[in-house]
Computed example of a mutant assay.
Amino acid sequence: MDEAVQGGKAPKYGVMICGHGSRSKSAVTEFAVLAEKLAPMFPDWPVEYGYLEFATPVIKTGLDKLREQGVTHVLAVPGMLFAAGHAKNDIPSVLNTYASEHGITIQYGRELAVDLQMLQAAGDRISAALAEADAANGPVPRSETCLVVIGRGASDPDANSNISKIARMLWEGMGFGWAEVGYSGVTFPLVQPCLEHVTRLGFKRIVVFPYFLFSGILIDRIYGFTDEVADAHPDIEIIKAGYLNDHPKVIATFADRVREILNGSNNMNCAMCKYRAQVLGFENEVGLPQESHHHHVEGQGVSAPGSNVEDCDLCDHFCTGACRLDAGHSHDHSHD
């Protein structure tokens, strides 16, 4: 972000955690808890948070709170696993606009990315699910178990490819017999066809792990399709691992991202970014302007349309994403 003149005075730092936002009350609550747990790691700096869309407080409100506490230099990080359009375009656009309007310095950190601590957190969630299944139903060798890692899915192929790397490292590191990758939306394969494919591979046990930070509509979708496939294949044990949430290693990685803004390497890996390089199939997106497309749903909160399955005529027990098959509305807002 652009540096602001601070009159020769030492800057007062503050930390801003920039979340995506969700229509799910539980997801919004979990993000707030994460921000609260991060605060003790920076006892000399105020820590605030805000959301890009749907939920409140919005990012601007969090920045306002930092300024009210005398902050002149904001260290902002995206509360996101990987760098796709929201981390690369939408959030920086909001931060740049705010810094320009209010004359403060905002430096922007990188996403959580593929990180050893994040892999350890993922491994813990998967191991806990396996241990519970072993206790309930008897042990199954990992060599006879297939791991399925489900990512969010994005319009950025570089971000999507990171899920494959996460899955591969968990596969080899934990000794599974096989691993597959699926996505909750936007790209392919989607959850249900991915799981149906895996049931034909001959494994006794399948463990489904959502590589997500928080709960929400998409977690409900992943678990809902998992239950449906499990019901259709009673001869296979299909278990659901927990998502990352506020695992201590996740909190530690967020803290690292804040510190490295001032003290370390703060570079996103842009080698395969579709906005900077001619990625196969995305050549026409090189050099697109950095701007936000989410003003129309900013701060709408859990009252936004589509927040509840009860209000949907297309879904019964969980959000299946069927509404996005509507060809008349090509921009997907059912993020969480």
Rank of each mutant, 00 (worst) to 15 (best):
D2N: 15
E3V: 15
A4K: 12
A10T: 14
A10Y: 08
Y13G: 08
G14P: 03
M16Y: 04
I17H: 11
S22Y: 01
S26L: 15
A27Q: 10
V28L: 03
F31M: 14
F31Q: 07
F31H: 00
F31R: 00
K37N: 10
L38G: 03
A39R: 15
F42C: 12
P43W: 05
A55V: 06
I59R: 07
T61W: 14
G62N: 11
D64M: 03
K65Y: 05
Q69F: 04
Q69Y: 12
T72A: 10
V74W: 02
M80Q: 06
L81C: 09
A84Y: 00
A84M: 05
N89W: 00
L95N: 07
T97E: 11
S100G: 11
E101V: 02
E101K: 14
H102G: 09
H102A: 05
G103M: 08
I106Y: 00
R110Y: 02
A113D: 12
D124A: 13
A129W: 00
E132L: 09
A135V: 00
A136G: 01
G138H: 02
G138E: 02
P141K: 09
A154M: 08
S155N: 07
K165Y: 03
A167F: 06
L170Q: 08
E172Q: 15
G173E: 04
M174P: 00
G175A: 12
E180R: 06
G182S: 08
V186F: 09
V186I: 13
V191F: 05
R200F: 08
K204D: 14
V207W: 03
V208K: 02
Y211F: 13
G216H: 04
G216K: 02
F225I: 01
T226V: 04
V229N: 08
D231W: 01
I238C: 03
I239G: 02
L244M: 11
L244C: 07
H247Q: 02
P248Y: 01
I251L: 12
A252K: 14
D256S: 09
I261W: 11
L262V: 04
G264Y: 09
G264R: 10
C270V: 15
Y275T: 10
L280K: 12
E291V: 08
H296K: 10
H296W: 09
V297C: 12
G299T: 14
S303G: 12
S303L: 08
P305Q: 12
G306H: 11
D316V: 11
H317W: 02
C319N: 05
C319W: 07
A322K: 09
L325C: 08
A327C: 02
A327W: 10
S330P: 01
S334G: 13
H335C: 14
D336L: 03
